[in-house]
Nucleic acid binder design. Structure first.
Lengths: 183, 183
DNA sequence: GCGGCTAGTAAACGCACGTATACTTCACGG
DNA sequence: CCGTGAAGTATACGTGCGTTTACTAGCCGC
């Protein structure tokens, strides 16, 4: 593989990677383009050149994230428990996903909020609703998402707490109640 | 009652009221001291003079909010349903409480986050935990709080939705699952 | 080998913020 | 009626931000 010092694509990728890590670490507003450029060992002006703006770079970071969460795959019966276990981890530590981490540090800028909203919809809520049956599948998917996001909020605001087996059971029960259709 | 144009206490109160409304409307970061001063028809410098700083003013706004939520009062059996109904309202519209509105617009500044955290603890989580029994009362109160906050997050991010009677039932079920102790 | 496109750079622009300072104006007690 | 102290004002300070501009330097085809 050729090594080029002046490589537009490689520099662009470095900026993207640095932005991905920093946004996940601190959220949108508390990351400056100077921080990103420094982390990528690139010049500040290149952010504007390659991504148009800070918001454009953020949008590309979001777009680069994988859409389907592995939690949603697998059998439908175990879905509530997988969600319960996955969410229980959120009580202790930050999510791996940059989207979710950024979401938790939630941005006030309406443009950024719209980007996050669109992404949450296509990456979490819609895939989840697609796995459910009934005409209120979307409402139930939203409520399950609420539980999921809420646990993150509580950890962020009140501090982490190690989930007990009872917590996992309780969360699983919550998701079962959310996902269960009318019988 | 005497009418005084130069009334320190009245001006202070106007600033406080303006700040309360604006913080609830836009969150901490997106409100400037200039906005507050303009809304209160007071001079910018008075914010610093009377409250020390913007953060000091915010702290006083938080401190002025009522501590105990009426939802928590009343019989324990109906608590889950009252929480369910109260939370269902959050699917449609913003909370009345400035604390909760500010919480939803969540501030990144660590100092402000600490203020919000302390307030959420003393105004919501602790009173709720106090009403529960069992050694994991706090864990269950935190989970109920997570559901409550999560519904707000989802409304803010994905847009409001009118709660159906089924939503109320489902939320009530969620809170029952959270609040129920070991049997 | 050299000119021209282009990646990369340095520096500054313009703005908005929270805060601080020096000044002005008014109410009120003597 | 006047001086004094507090209430209120105008303005500027310093900082940090996202963005832009004018420039430099390197790669590549000819």
């Amino acid at each position: 593989m050729e090594v080029r010092l002046r490589d537009r694509e490689a520099t662009r990728e470095r900026l993207l990677a640095a932005a991905r890590a920093l946004f996940a670490e601190h959220g949108y507003e508390r990351v400056t383009v100077r921080m990103i450029a420094a982390a990528a060992e690139a010049n500040i002006a290149l952010v504007g050149r390659y991504f148009g703006s800070k918001a454009g770079l953020f949008g590309e970071v979001l777009a680069g994230e994988p859409t389907v969460r592995q939690v949603l795959e697998g059998d439908l019966e175990g879905l509530a428990r997988r969600l319960g276990e996955y969410t229980a981890q959120r009580m202790r530590a930050e999510p791996d996903s940059p989207i979710l981490r950024t979401l938790e540090r939630s941005a006030g800028d309406p443009e950024i909020q719209a980007l996050l909203s669109e992404r949450l919809r296509t990456a979490v809520v819609n895939p989840l609703a697609a796995r459910l049956e009934g005409d209120d599948a979307m409402a139930r998917a939203r409520m399950a998402t609420a539980v999921f996001l809420g646990v993150g909020s509580v950890r962020r605001l009140l501090g982490p707490s190690d989930p007990t087996p009872e917590d996992v059971d309780r969360l699983t029960g919550l998701f079962e109640a959310c996902l269960r259709g009318r019988e």
